[in-house]
């Protein structure tokens, strides 16, 4: 129920942004009715596909995910500048690496956020997704720092699932 209302609210905001009709005269009531109808149909299709869960509509974890994005923005800035230096050197001097990063995350959302974060950070791209690890291609040897990957994994795990409790087990 919460996810249905949340998805309707998000779709309604999207529709209002893209249509930009805020008056109630002339033909606009009809257009607004059509908008409400299309939102209801979209939510109905989502219900029928049975994908209306916390993974599709991550509104509960949204503040944490946005805070994580802010941290990721800083990382992206730093990585962009280092990649820019590598690219614009007068003589190209790179040493590409293909490394396997171990992954121990609790949910699919956390895995998705982690893999996308690795790809978004310039210099590292997730090439293959396996059950217990990602295959990551790095532009230079200096970008395959295990501590950096571990911190990103910890933060994405916390953003998607909250703090680890003792029941989850500290087996990382």
């Amino acid at each position: 129920m919460l996810y249905g209302v949340g998805l309707s609210a998000i779709l309604g905001l999207l529709w209002l942004t893209l249509s930009g009709n805020y008056t109630l005269s002339g033909d606009y009531p009809l257009i607004i009715m059509l908008g409400i109808l299309s939102i209801l149909i979209s939510v109905g299709i989502t219900l029928r596909m049975r994908i209306l869960d916390r993974e599709t509509v991550p509104i509960v974890r949204a503040p944490h995910l946005i805070a994580y994005w802010a941290w990721l923005g800083g990382q992206i800035l730093a990585a962009n500048i280092s990649v820019l230096k590598l690219i614009m050197r007068p003589d190209v001097d790179i040493e590409p690496r293909l490394v396997r990063v171990p992954v121990d995350l609790r949910s699919g959302t956390a895995r998705c956020v982690y893999a996308n974060s690795i790809t978004l950070t310039p210099g590292t791209v997730t090439v293959d997704v396996e059950d217990d690890g990602y295959l990551v291609h790095a532009l230079d040897k200096s970008m395959t720092d295990p501590a950096g990957f571990a911190e990103m994994a910890l933060r994405s795990d916390r953003a998607a699932d909250g703090q680890r409790t003792s029941e989850d087990g500290e087996n990382s």
């Binding site: 590409p96 310039p122 090439v127 291609h137 532009l139």
Partner: peptide, 11 residues
């Protein structure tokens, strides 16, 4: 090569 070009496009 292709994989390194991919990083450049990511910037």
């Amino acid at each position: 090569d292709f994989y390194t070009r991919m990083h450049a496009a990511g910037v």
